Amino acid sequence: MAASAKKKQYDIEYAKTHLKRVPLDLRLDKYDEIKAHAEQRSESVNGFIKRAINETMERDGDPA
């Protein structure tokens, strides 16, 4: 197996055991707004959403 094929297989196995996909439906106009906002900050849409979640959870604090 070539190195790139091994890497691809590793990535697939890693994703299966460590990641969870979360589908998100947005109106096209809202997506365009989010994308523009993220691009202004040299950020991907995915990166922006993750940052927004992390900052909100940090601001909300520990519920316990």
Rank of each mutant, 00 (worst) to 15 (best):
residue 1 M to H: 05
residue 1 M to L: 08
residue 2 A to G: 12
residue 2 A to K: 10
residue 3 A to E: 12
residue 3 A to T: 12
residue 3 A to K: 11
residue 4 S to A: 14
residue 4 S to E: 10
residue 4 S to I: 10
residue 4 S to W: 05
residue 4 S to D: 09
residue 4 S to G: 06
residue 5 A to H: 08
residue 5 A to L: 10
residue 6 K to W: 05
residue 6 K to P: 02
residue 6 K to N: 13
residue 6 K to H: 09
residue 7 K to R: 14
residue 7 K to M: 14
residue 7 K to I: 15
residue 7 K to D: 13
residue 8 K to V: 13
residue 8 K to G: 12
residue 9 Q to F: 10
residue 10 Y to C: 00
residue 10 Y to S: 01
residue 11 D to A: 05
residue 11 D to Y: 04
residue 11 D to L: 05
residue 12 I to E: 12
residue 12 I to H: 11
residue 13 E to N: 09
residue 13 E to F: 04
residue 13 E to V: 04
residue 14 Y to W: 12
residue 15 A to F: 01
residue 15 A to Y: 00
residue 16 K to F: 03
residue 16 K to Q: 06
residue 17 T to S: 14
residue 19 L to E: 06
residue 20 K to H: 12
residue 20 K to A: 13
residue 21 R to F: 11
residue 21 R to S: 14
residue 22 V to H: 05
residue 22 V to G: 03
residue 23 P to M: 03
residue 23 P to G: 02
residue 23 P to A: 03
residue 24 L to I: 15
residue 24 L to F: 07
residue 25 D to W: 11
residue 25 D to N: 11
residue 25 D to H: 11
residue 26 L to M: 02
residue 27 R to W: 08
residue 27 R to I: 09
residue 28 L to Q: 10
residue 28 L to A: 14
residue 30 K to H: 12
residue 30 K to W: 08
residue 30 K to L: 15
residue 31 Y to H: 12
residue 31 Y to V: 05
residue 31 Y to K: 10
residue 31 Y to F: 14
residue 32 D to E: 14
residue 33 E to A: 15
residue 34 I to P: 02
residue 35 K to V: 02
residue 35 K to S: 03
residue 36 A to W: 02
residue 37 H to Q: 10
residue 39 E to V: 00
residue 39 E to Y: 03
residue 40 Q to T: 13
residue 40 Q to C: 09
residue 42 S to H: 12
residue 42 S to V: 05
residue 43 E to A: 09
residue 43 E to Q: 14
residue 44 S to N: 00
residue 44 S to I: 02
residue 45 V to P: 01
residue 45 V to S: 02
residue 45 V to Q: 01
residue 45 V to W: 01
residue 45 V to G: 01
residue 45 V to H: 02
residue 46 N to W: 07
residue 46 N to R: 10
residue 46 N to A: 15
residue 47 G to N: 07
residue 47 G to W: 06
residue 47 G to H: 05
residue 47 G to A: 08
residue 47 G to M: 04
residue 48 F to N: 00
residue 48 F to C: 03
residue 49 I to V: 03
residue 49 I to K: 02
residue 51 R to S: 14
residue 51 R to E: 11
residue 52 A to S: 13
residue 52 A to Q: 08
residue 53 I to Y: 00
residue 53 I to D: 01
residue 54 N to G: 07
residue 54 N to W: 04
residue 55 E to D: 08
residue 55 E to Q: 05
residue 56 T to S: 10
residue 57 M to V: 15
residue 57 M to T: 13
residue 58 E to Y: 04
residue 60 D to Q: 12
residue 60 D to W: 07
residue 62 D to F: 06
residue 62 D to E: 11
residue 62 D to M: 06
residue 62 D to N: 12
residue 63 P to E: 01
residue 63 P to Y: 01
residue 63 P to C: 01
residue 64 A to W: 08
